[in-house]
């Protein structure tokens, strides 16, 4: 199974997050592009892992974040939205099977 969901935007103070759920992945992968990668890259990664755990997904994901200066709450919100969208796709997918 391979599913994709995006949330957010590339407008200033926002970020675009793309989650790919892929059965071929052997671990979670996080890629972050940000103007403040030096200052906040580590923290953004931590928050992303927290949201992966909170979401309780039992599969590995590849997450790509293109940051335009988003605050932490925006990062969380966009991750949650993307995960919810993936979740909804999975329900649809299961019904299909």
């Amino acid at each position: 199974m391979k599913l994709n969901a995006v949330a957010g935007s590339l407008i200033s103070c926002d970020l675009l997050v793309e989650i790919e759920l892929n059965d071929n992945l052997t671990d979670n992968e996080i890629i972050i592009e940000s103007p403040s990668i030096i200052q906040y890259g580590k923290k953004m990664k931590e928050i992303t892992y927290e949201e992966i755990i909170r979401n309780g997904l039992k599969k590995f994901v590849r997450i790509k974040i293109v940051d335009k200066g988003a605050l932490d709450y925006v990062l969380r919100a966009r991750l949650q939205t993307a995960f919810n969208r993936i979740g909804k796709m999975m329900i649809v997918g299961e019904n299909d099977e």
Binding site: G8, L71, D72, Y73, R76, Q80, N84
Partner: peptide, 13 residues
Amino acid sequence: DSARSLVKNAIIN
């Protein structure tokens, strides 16, 4: 859905 989530997180914060 994304607005709901954003507002929710803003209120938390």
